[in-house]
Amino acid sequence: MSKGLLRTIAGAGLVLLAGCNPQQSAFAPAGVEAERINVLFWVMTIAGGLIFAGVIVLCVLAIYAGDTLRSRLSGERLITGAGIVFPIVVLSVLLVYGFVVLRAGAGAPPSDDGIRFAISGEQWWWRVTYFDADGNRFESANELHIPVGRSVRLELTTADVLHSFWVPRLAGKLDMIPGRTNVLTVTATEEGISRGQCAEYCGGAHALMAFYVVAQAPEDFKAWLAKESGPAVKIEGEHAAHGAQLFLDAGCGACHTIRGTPAHGVIGPDLTHVGSRFSLAAGVLPNTAEAFARWVANNQHIKPENKMPPYNIFTRSELADLALYLESLK
């Protein structure tokens, strides 16, 4: 069966079954690794479906067929043939096929531009660190940018409990384990945004620990990287300036960093370019000024048990200014 046909079936199945937005669906691969697995899935599903149908037919025949056929099915030959020989053959083929898929990713050359990607799972967000070719290091959070068509090595670690890094459209998942660095290789095949989510139960707000991966053309990625590595943008306007002052006065800098300002905290996500990200609070809220305000004042309700205390100290207009400032950090 050709790959194209399989993909058509896969696509049809997807539309039929999973409905609307496939940005976290393994049925809509946008990476080399995920595509291979998707083909493997459909091959196994079709073969498994045929075997299942076969067993059911045999079972029905064993009960309702005529005497001749029934007596033919009643010997130990059925058991040795269908229960021993057949599975050994099928499983051997599948085993080899599985290894081929597994090996296929192993030999891919790493991206040659010398950029390293490190992701640390933390209760309940993702610390994303880039090391550029010159050894400069800068942080972001809950969003990963990668170049399309390059094999990218993601260095996965955890700061606390077990997490698992999973972007179904790009590749399978890999756990983040204390004391270890696991390396996941992904190769995006098309530009676009995919959603990922923590796949290893990590306590409390495990359900609310998502992130986005933005796959960009290599030159776009370079441009993005150049901007992302720089300090925060200049503050424009009186309200935003007030918001910036509130940010520092309220002690937000104890946990958060905004490069180019006195805020150097390392406990929480780096907010230098938070306004340019796709979402807030690890995929929980959209990135709007209104969402920033809700989050600051009411985050324990939106994402229970998260490590940021709720800030109810601000007046409504203060909150608006603070949100405006944060949202402006493009």
Binding site: I37, M44, G98
Partner: peptide, 19 residues
């Protein structure tokens, strides 16, 4: 049992595991 054989194929388990 058949889905069990599917998840025994390691690459597929990378996707299916913990879902």
């Amino acid at each position: 049992g058949l889905t069990g054989v599917m998840v025994a194929a390691v690459p597929f388990d990378f996707q299916a595991h913990d879902t």
